[in-house]
Design a protein around this nucleic acid. Structure first.
Lengths: 195, 195
DNA sequence: TTTTAATATGAATAATCGTTCATTTTTTAA
DNA sequence: TTAAAAAATGAACGATTATTCATATTAAAA
């Protein structure tokens, strides 16, 4: 039954999210994931061909969620600067609400190019492009300086948010709240690029 | 003889830099590092107790270099904004000139908290604080808005540069040159935080 | 030169874990 | 209800690889 299979896949991914976040991909044992999911070791291999595939499926599922959610959020605003501010807030909010996912994306996504030679993270590129598109729109509306290179600016903005996330994810306590961090970071950026 | 030992340690670290960058920590075999260094597998264990220790020593050595170099660069400027610009340029230049090191710091440093429970990267914190101190100085001189929170701003700026590095390190070709990227990123930031 | 100490070697060890598959259990179809 | 198919199990396998250590080599001291 198609429905049940998806259910079990998701159960495995949910378990893997927890275990990968806690131990990292390499130190996470397949048997631990199985135990967390409440199934036998071998069952995992009915749904995933290799351990790697669990991580890839995890990326795909989470990134799809994140991307869809952010698209919706952005569409609620019409002003490019308001979009940027909203992006910052919801990005950081997402991190706060999904620590395990955030930790995996922070840590494992970066090394994914090493152990999965051919895996191209298209969803991540699309996520970055959400910012790129806002900047492009702002330039066209004359709100953002023509000197700004969207390919650099989108990375600078994402990187600023991402480093903040890293700090939260890897340290135990949150020193700044989401609202403050989002407001600060988006205001540096908006003031920095506006015409 | 002290001198010779240090020499061999460095030879091992140099070899490890190459291998870790190419394969990542977990996929790098100790025997490969030994081969790259032109020594026997066992010899590595005279200089390092565990594989982990090679990576830690590597971090320490590289970060010390990076930190020393950047301190010198910053001290050449007196104006906080000029310091920021110089920081951006030399950070990106360093990445460009030391691809292997950059790749390791990008990828392995992030997961270091996972496999080395007790390793605190003090040098990295100091590196971030170089930016924090510049911002503090700028605030005191009235050049930077009092609303700016150095603990957030330093991460935002570093993150912007770091994301650019990530792009360079993980993609094959460099799309933007160092000068352009440094100028863009530091100008967003400076305009964003100035009074 | 001879003795002693320090270094280096690399084959052997031992532990780890991803993956398989013969068997059992559950579900579906007849 | 019974037969066939699908899904699940988990013990066993086998490949990998960090680390050790008995032996050999080189350097230092006597």
């Amino acid at each position: 039954m198609r429905h049940k299979n998806n259910e079990k896949s998701r159960k495995i991914i949910a378990a893997a999210t927890k275990i990968f976040a806690k131990k990292g991909f390499y130190k996470a044992k397949v048997s631990e994931i199985a135990q967390e999911a409440g199934i036998a070791d071998g069952t995992i291999y009915i749904y995933f061909k290799h351990k790697d595939d669990i991580l890839i499926a995890l990326f795909e599922e989470k990134m799809r969620e994140v991307l869809d959610n952010m698209k919706k959020q952005i569409s609620l605003e019409s002003d490019p600067f308001a979009k940027i501010e909203r992006f910052a807030y919801f990005h950081l909010k997402l991190i706060e609400d999904n620590k395990d996912m955030a930790e995996i994306i922070q840590v494992e996504l970066r090394q994914s190019s090493k152990f999965m030679k051919n895996y191209q993270n298209k969803k991540f590129a699309q996520y970055l492009d959400l910012i790129g598109d806002i900047i492009q729109e702002g330039k066209e509306k004359g709100l953002i300086s023509q000197d700004i290179i969207p390919g650099i600016a989108k990375r600078a903005f994402f990187g600023a948010l991402d480093e903040m996330s890293r700090f939260w994810v890897l340290s135990k306590r949150r020193k700044y709240d989401v609202e403050t961090a989002a407001r600060q970071i988006s205001s540096y950026f908006i003031n920095g690029i506006k015409n």
